[in-house]
């Protein structure tokens, strides 16, 4: 006997953001992990990692095949809430080069429906360096709009206004001897690193060595994802893994 019977309802998103200034542009951080740029009517998501499950299955590790559906559902939720005229997927949209080819027809149709009537930009990432197969949208390595530049991996000495993903930021805080770890946005006001949007993606603690050089030491903030809200902390309040 298993108690797991009822399917849980699909989560609905409210288009309410935490507004901050990034290199002079007003952007909104959403608790789904998406970034909303009202002036450009643009929604940005990073590291969707579609078809991660099947990518593992090819090697004999049979992860649940529901990750693509779940990520798509979540994406549909935020697109429904913001109704953007432009969507930017910040790279690693597919877990491997053949990911878009493996995408089952139903999901391909769902994705195509989401793309209808809006501009869609696929930024290439290290997992998906080539354009997705038979899907709409433009593929480019990076894109510049007004004061911001969008690329997958952060660049050394990038000019202010870089928006990127790749690192899957996560943060940990401690209180009363207990700790809580969550995915998060990480920013110093000049550069913004988005959390991974895909459902089967882990996170890398922002205090890990891989982050050194990205932000002034202790001179950045994180916005941890919560239910219906974000939790802001300065770096000095965070703890390592």
């Amino acid at each position: 006997m298993s108690p797991f019977t009822a399917q849980q309802p699909v989560r609905r998103f409210a288009p309410v953001c935490h507004d901050i200034s990034l290199a002079g542009e007003l952007v909104g951080l959403h608790d789904s992990g998406a970034l909303w740029w009202p002036d450009e009517d643009t929604l940005v998501v990073s590291d969707l990692h579609f078809e991660k499950g099947s990518s593992y299955a090819r090697r004999g590790v049979m992860l649940p095949p529901y990750d693509t559906a779940a990520t798509l559902e979540k994406l549909a939720g935020v697109i429904d809430a913001f109704d953007p005229s432009r969507v930017i997927a910040l790279g690693d949209s597919f877990h491997d080069t053949n990911g878009s080819d493996r995408l089952p027809a139903t999901y391909r149709a769902m994705l195509t429906t989401l793309q209808l009537g809006r501009e869609w930009i696929w930024i290439t990432g290290n997992h998906d360096p080539v354009a997705p197969v038979s899907l709409c949208g433009e593929t480019m390595e990076e894109v510049r709009l007004a004061g911001l530049v969008f690329r997958h991996e952060p660049e050394e000495d990038a000019a202010p206004g870089e928006v990127c993903g790749h690192l899957h930021p996560a943060a940990r805080i401690r209180r009363y001897g207990r700790s809580v770890r969550r995915p998060c946005f990480a920013t110093d006001g000049q550069r913004m690193v988005l959390p991974a949007f895909g459902v089967l993606t882990g996170g890398l603690n922002v205090l890990d060595e891989a982050w050194s050089g990205l932000f002034p030491p202790r001179g950045f903030s994180v916005f941890m994802l919560g239910e219906g809200r974000l939790y802001p902390f300065t770096a000095s309040r965070l703890v390592a893994d």
Partner: peptide, 14 residues
């Protein structure tokens, strides 16, 4: 944890 969440939601009688 992530696998557990996905599985519980999509195939509760797995």
């Amino acid at each position: 944890d992530l696998i557990y969440d996905v599985l519980r939601r999509h195939e509760p009688d797995h």
